[in-house]
Design a protein around this nucleic acid. Structure first.
Length: 831
DNA sequence: GCGTCCAATACTGAG
DNA sequence: TATTGGACGC
């Protein structure tokens, strides 16, 4: 938003009431957005004054209610668009809400300018008041990577062994302190002692350092605003008058800092409407306090509580399964979701031998759903999603889908701006905008390589520190003092000259402009502004990437003697990096200048590219919150993976309950078809590990679940591996062995137990196909064996189920017996 | 100062 | 297994 819009907004807040009433009269329009709301939703929409807590279960139309509420505020003239503050957690949610408000209101009313994430709104505010916390309004926002580099410098300077005390750990601590709105001086003694007793000290140093760098991290955005509101009541009052109506999405995910920020803003008028679902609180690990939602009534006395309990999203079975799982949690606010939808498919459950098998099966399943075999209506790829617990699970799906040519998109993978080349390019842009951005300077001073490595940087840094100036000024001093040698001596002046030239091109010539009467009254005598620059920011960006030699550094000339020969990439990923840089430059088109762009990148830019082609979505359960799909796959339901071992170790029962909510979120994303799966074995760090099915599997109510049989074994009689291979019609031993052992995995046995206890039909002849456990796991020293991955080998030693095997090709390994097949029983199958 | 090799480490998760 | 960072050699 431009400066002028902001001024407008301030004026709006101070409009006389009579004029507002006039606006209301003129704005008395039809209210079509109220049609189709159920009584609860309608109540939530129409209760405009005073605190409202909307407890909205999954799929109960909460976004609909929220957007209708905004439309209602505006249409009835209660508020002008700039008097409404609407906060979300993710960019995606903000975008969605913007679109929907726009659609409800048509062209009639401009969207709500103060609709955004906590972070983006805080940046806007902090730019206005930066000086109150010792920053300039053009401060830079550091991402996690910058943050860790900076911390590392401080840690090393303190003489701490950063091996034993990693910077990441400190970053995590500081982040959690900021989430709880603890500034260094307010840090409880119990916390300050963390990190080898130096946590508090380093936190203070870090904040000082950020201030001198004119920078802040994500956590600071909120923390600084809370500090400002607390120390400068006049500023707070301004915003309280300004934001007459506040709406908050996903309230269950607010951390203490966000909660304080909201409470301060709403304290005067109390027109705050929070929407949340305690059952979907899945961000405890980053400081979210479910307590915030539980104590809403206490904080805002007389709050109206509206429960949205009718689910419009999922079938009866899906809802039943989700409710069954979440019922295992204690201390819920207690909502009872219901649906009028009847019938539909049960939640499907299937066990697999390993993660690859699971990926294969899901790939096949997606293809058959897509083509509508099995008499079902075809489902488009856009309507299917795979939701995983941890991002590393995505890999097996990507691999598989690439081999079968199934189009997919990964949502929320490594963010666009976190990529190496984007960060490098951004560092150049940051320097062009502000020459004293030391972090950016350090990043690119020797990128591409120009002979300015550690030693030169140390000299520059010493010169800068010694004179209390920025690195670029320090560099100039170092040059003056002739402190540099070799290549550095010639390259550094060139770099500085380029940077200064680019900086000069970010703006036009300085010229005197007219002083308004208002300014004159405030003793402004004269005023200068920069004119239009000679080159626009897009040309400038291209110029920087080109002249710095950055783009060229990814390529080498095919033929050094022929200048026209096509350059060839130095690494295989170079062309991709170049594409990303092009995309970066293209994104610049939407902005007026580099500065505006830099902010957008840091805070908003994600890589959910709106792509026209149909694709299956792959994402984490966290990223899936707020989304819905007709068909959802939930793989990897294994204890340790989901629920995550780490979560349980760190937070015990609390952690387990959060995992359970995550399961609830996952199941409730599905509209029609929900398929849960687990694998008995999975590669972790390249090592095979076996696991039991998730305890959440056992919590699924049986009447809502259908158990599927793994493929390939229907109706065949087989008693040996060889027979089975014949039965499978394949000569692939790997596959046959894998299939056979499905029936040995604990998960499979548990499935079977469940089936037989309910008197359900078992997969035919499965008993016969179970390879005798003894045959699989008892080996003798000297025996020849075969392993899926390592090939043939000889048993050297046996310790319980762990075997030392000397493989012919792969060398000596320790493996678990169940991964081995006796070489004899493997037969003479050719490989 | 730069490149290469080896060892340690990582895989919860968002802005 | 993939990546990364530090030690080491040129």
């Amino acid at each position: 938003m431009s400066k002028f819009d902001e001024e407008d907004a301030f004026e709006a807040a101070s409009l006389p009431l009579s004029q507002r009433a006039m606006g209301a009269a003129m704005g008395a329009r039809a209210t079509p957005y109220l049609d189709g709301l159920n009584p609860a939703q309608r109540e939530a929409v129409e209760t405009l004054d005073g605190p409202v807590l909307m407890l909205a279960g999954a799929g109960t139309g909460k976004t609909k209610a929220l957007t209708a509420r905004i439309a209602h505020l505006l249409t009835t003239g209660r508020a002008r668009p700039n008097e409404v503050l609407a906060v979300t957690f993710t960019n995606k949610a903000a975008r969605e809400m913007k679109n929907r408000v726009g659609a409800l209101l048509g062209e009639a009313v401009e969207g709500v300018p103060w609709l955004g994430t906590f972070h983006s709104i805080c940046v806007k505010q902090l730019r206005r008041h930066a000086e109150l916390v010792g920053l300039k309004s053009n401060f830079t926002i550091l991402d996690t990577d910058d943050q860790i580099r900076l911390l590392k410098q401080l840690i090393v300077a303190e003489g701490i062994d950063d091996k034993r005390w990693p910077a990441r750990m400190l970053a995590g601590l500081i982040d959690s302190w900021k989430n709880r709105a603890w500034t260094p001086d307010a840090l409880p003694a119990s916390e300050a002692g963390a990190y080898d007793n130096k946590g508090g000290k380093l936190y203070a140093q870090y904040q000082d350092r950020l201030r001198t760098l004119n920078a802040c991290d994500f956590g600071d955005l909120l923390l600084h605003m809370v500090t400002i509101f607390q120390k400068h009541p006049d500023v707070l009052e301004q915003y309280q008058r300004w934001f007459r109506y506040i709406l908050v999405d996903e309230y269950q995910d607010t951390n203490v800092a966000q909660y304080m920020w909201l409470r301060l803003l709403a304290a005067a008028h109390r027109n705050i409407c929070c929407v949340g679902d305690d059952d979907q609180s899945i961000y405890g690990w980053r400081g979210a306090e479910v307590g915030n939602i539980l104590r809403f009534e206490k904080d805002f006395e007389g709050a109206k509580i509206v429960k949205l309990e009718q689910n419009y999203r999922s079938t009866e079975h899906i809802l039943g399964a989700a409710s069954g799982v979440i019922a295992g949690n204690k201390g819920r606010l207690g909502k009872t979701l219901f649906t009028e939808a009847k019938g539909g498919e049960k939640v499907r459950l299937i066990g697999h031998w390993d993660g690859e098998e699971e990926a294969r099966w899901i790939g096949d399943e997606i293809e058959s759903l897509q083509s509508g075999t099995r008499g079902l209506t075809p489902i488009g790829l856009n309507d299917m999603a795979i939701l995983v617990r941890a991002s590393h699970q995505m890999r097996s799906f990507e691999d598989r889908f690439l081999t079968i040519g199934l189009p997919y998109r990964v949502i929320g993978g490594p963010r666009f701006y976190e990529r190496l080349e984007i960060r490098d390019a951004m560092a150049y842009f940051r320097l062009a905008v502000s020459l004293d951005d030391d972090l950016a300077f350090e990043r690119i001073v020797n990128t591409p390589k120009r002979g300015l490595a550690d030693k030169s940087v140390q000299i520059i840094r010493a010169a800068a520190n010694g004179n209390g100036v920025s690195l670029i000024e320090g560099a100039k001093i170092a040059i003056e003092a002739n402190a540099l040698k070799g290549k550095a001596k010639s390259e550094l002046p060139k770099l500085i000259a380029s940077l200064e030239r680019w900086h000069g091109l970010t703006r036009g010539p300085l010229r005197q402009v007219f002083v308004s009467e208002a300014e004159a009254a405030n003793d402004v005598v004269e005023r200068f502004e920069y004119g239009e620059p000679d080159v626009n920011h897009i040309q400038l960006a291209e110029m920087i990437l080109d002249e710095s030699g950055y783009t060229a550094s990814y390529f080498k000339p095919e033929d050094p003697n022929d200048p026209d020969a096509a350059p060839i990439p130095i690494t295989p990923e170079a062309p991709g990096r170049l594409d990303n840089l092009k995309e970066l430059v293209k994104a610049l088109e939407q902005f007026e200048n580099l500065q505006g762009f830099l902010e957008h990148i840091a805070l908003v830019m994600d890589n959910d590219s709106e792509d026209a082609t149909e694709k299956v979505s792959i994402m984490t359960l966290h990223a899936a919150k707020g989304l819905e799909f007709p068909a959802v796959f939930l793989p990897g339901w294994e204890d340790g993976l989901f629920p995550s071992q780490r979560s349980m170790d760190e937070s015990g029962l609390k952690g387990l309950e959060e995992e359970r909510r995550l399961a609830y979120v996952g199941i409730t994303r599905a509209e029609e078809l929900c398929t849960i799966s687990f694998a008995g074995n999975r590669r972790v760090y390249g090592q095979w590990q076996s696991a039991l099915p998730s305890r959440f599997v056992d919590e699924l109510p049986e009447r809502h679940v259908e158990i599927l049989t793994p493929p390939g074994l229907y109706g065949h009689q087989a008693s040996t591996v060889g027979d089975m291979m014949d039965a499978l019609g394949g000569s692939d031993l790997h596959e046959a062995a894998a299939k056979a052992n499905v029936y040995n995995s604990p998960g499979w046995r548990r499935l079977q137990e469940r089936q037989s206890s309910r008197g359900m039909s078992q997969p035919r002849e499965s008993k016969n196909m179970v390879i005798d456990a003894q045959a699989v796991s008892s080996f003798t020293v000297g025996e020849r064996v075969f392993h899926q991955k390592f090939g043939y080998g000889e048993i050297m030693a046996v310790e319980g189920d762990k075997l030392d095997v000397s493989f012919d090709k792969a060398g000596d390994k320790k493996v678990v017996g169940k991964f081995l097949v006796s070489a004899d029983s493997a037969g003479d199958v050719p490989f």
